[in-house]
Design a protein around this nucleic acid. Sequence first.
DNA 1: CAGGGATTAATCGTGTGCAACTAAATTGCT
DNA 2: AGCAATTTAGTTGCACACGATTAATCCCTG
Lengths: 154, 154
Amino acid sequence: MSNTTPRRLDDQLCFAFYSASKKFNHFYQDALRPFHLTYPQYITLLALWETSPMTVRELGSHLNLDSGTLTPLLKRLEKQGWITRKRSDQDERQVNVTLTDHALEKRDEVYARVNDCIDLMSFDGVDYDQLIDQIHQVMTELDGISHKDLIHES
Amino acid sequence: MSNTTPRRLDDQLCFAFYSASKKFNHFYQDALRPFHLTYPQYITLLALWETSPMTVRELGSHLNLDSGTLTPLLKRLEKQGWITRKRSDQDERQVNVTLTDHALEKRDEVYARVNDCIDLMSFDGVDYDQLIDQIHQVMTELDGISHKDLIHES
DNA sequence: CAGGGATTAATCGTGTGCAACTAAATTGCT
DNA sequence: AGCAATTTAGTTGCACACGATTAATCCCTG
């Protein structure tokens, strides 16, 4: 079928995600300014505060980022003293990313700062669990469709 | 206050938006590949299919993008024959962005392609209106807080 | 144990995003 | 009219994001 009017709702949904993601990114950027961290750098550290060391590939599959994004990001985190990067001895293809002592010491300070900033918000009318659940449903649907059946290429 | 454990839910919410936005972006990238359009280019055209011409500033306030992003994006759209950019006669500070005839002709084809791709998805368990509404609530909250009271800088 | 396929990071190129700055034009105020 | 504040695009610099490619290493099978 496919009529010729745009799917307002789907476009709106995508645009809402797009805009919200940018706003959240900006919010975290502000919150993390004292530490000179970007949001992608922050979630990288979050993952490492859970498990360190990790290989680049492990990090990438947690964060859905490939080495083309991670390698330069990790180099910046290394330069600023948060992590070290070291080729694995067992398997020299892999690079182990390890938190520095400085990163371990700063952890609580970063958490506290983020929490302080989040305290300034009141998501009163929002049902967190349900919202996150719906977003996950949308993502699952998108995963199912990506790359598939889109081969009516011109 | 501000304990030292991360706010799992808020971080999860931000990460969900971040991930969903990337997935949607990717989905539209696939859908629009026949036209060599990116998602930001597509929403720019969407806005212009509603109202053309628009100034760069008007486009920017619709899309929440500044000239630093739009100027190069518009130059690419111009080079590919979708739009023209012309300094306004009345106010030479402004640049009028106008759809080309080619863009007007392609409109229905683009809509049809996007709709075909969206047809491949079934957002069964998802309440669209409610989801978009909740996202808007989150964005409103983020707008209210941005830049405000975040001045306990280190 | 040699050699080909698979895996892993790194690299390269393109395209956003955005803060900060610049340059030009307009507006407003006296 | 004349000049300062404002508005508007463009430019620059940095940081993602990702597809495509490359180089090194590992593994597996004959």
